[in-house]
Design a protein around this nucleic acid. Sequence first.
DNA 1: AACGAACCGTACCGTACGGTACGCCTGCGG
DNA 2: CCGCAGGCGTACCGTACGGTACGGTTCGTT
Lengths: 216, 216
Amino acid sequence: MALTIKVNEETFTPRQQAVLTAALDLLVENGDGLTMTAVARRASCSKETLYKWFGDRDGLLTATVQWQAAKVRMPVVDRSHLNAKALRLSIEQFARDLLTVITGEVSITLNRTAVTHAAQEKDSLGIIVLENGPLAIRRRLKPILEAGRDARLLRFDSSEDAYRTFFGLVVRDVQIRLLLGDKALTQTNVVANIEADVKAATDQFFALYGAKANNP
Amino acid sequence: MALTIKVNEETFTPRQQAVLTAALDLLVENGDGLTMTAVARRASCSKETLYKWFGDRDGLLTATVQWQAAKVRMPVVDRSHLNAKALRLSIEQFARDLLTVITGEVSITLNRTAVTHAAQEKDSLGIIVLENGPLAIRRRLKPILEAGRDARLLRFDSSEDAYRTFFGLVVRDVQIRLLLGDKALTQTNVVANIEADVKAATDQFFALYGAKANNP
DNA sequence: AACGAACCGTACCGTACGGTACGCCTGCGG
DNA sequence: CCGCAGGCGTACCGTACGGTACGGTTCGTT
């Protein structure tokens, strides 16, 4: 159970999804408040049903994170005719999606849950969150970057390095500060600046990896 | 108790420091294993003493994190005669310090503990970790950056933005992946690449903010 | 020597929570 | 109409852990 990571969407009945929704709500409202009793009460079901469906508490947690993380599907960017303007818009869109997801309350909750989980020799949740968060973006961004390089619009040796630089330029210290509960970073504040941050990060990315850049 | 954040180094007796060391060891070994009984046994002291010294479990946790985080004192960089080479060495040193700290087992543990804590309406640990981690670097880096600007070696409008870009270029996705327990990032692997990453990040930082850079 | 403070070890209490058992209701196939 | 499977609600059990109490020991002070 702990070792089987079902990457594909598990097929949950509507009733089960209602239970998962209740569990997620409890997680968001009160991070550690995910007790089986609380979920049962919130979802109006019996604890016995929870155990029948999800095995144990960890199974319920995993199902919740898995199910919710998989819902974070960012819009696919058009990849045809890669002129400079289209490429820039694509990059900006990725930056915007990444920042929007990361600053969302659900994402913060899932990441906190996974980090907490990772602090106890359990890493399955961390893998799930990674797989559906940064790595999902990476999988979709890399082909765009490489297409940009093929079109002589970008210049880099390793698309992995380019991706990680992009991640750093966009995320900066926002995620860790949100995870640590930095009050100075109210989400409204961050959200209000997303557009400016997106533009700045994209500018910097092109300054480093644009074809005309003077990087080694 | 919960509201008083003692920024200055609390003066702990050697015996108390031994207790805090035991607590930290337990945290590192087994993230959630910080039970009062375990600490008392490890430190060969009585639980009653723990409660007398630290008030309650949260007090012990706070004292441990506070005490340990404050120990992360990165070497001060020479700020005199800022020629281009000295500035670059300083920046590199900051990058190296930041990466070294972040990838350390103690830092990972403290950050995980603080994130877990933040998931429960408690934010004091997060503040402590932030204050002694990223913000400590920021406090010491900003003057250097501004001195570099005064010396016409760097060009930027906001030193805050410059710092955050520096943070992103150096940290990238390393910290969040370590916090989530990404096995693909064994620490030895990261540590082995620190020097290369330091150089790359510094190159990129100067490409963006160096006086000869073509940034707006 | 006598006293008391600090502290260790351990036993103890109350509670919270994971997990299980059981009685009851509802809906559906024969 | 009967039986039964699925599921709800609740009661229950065992354990782990935070927090307290207490007897015994060491050590410094007078």
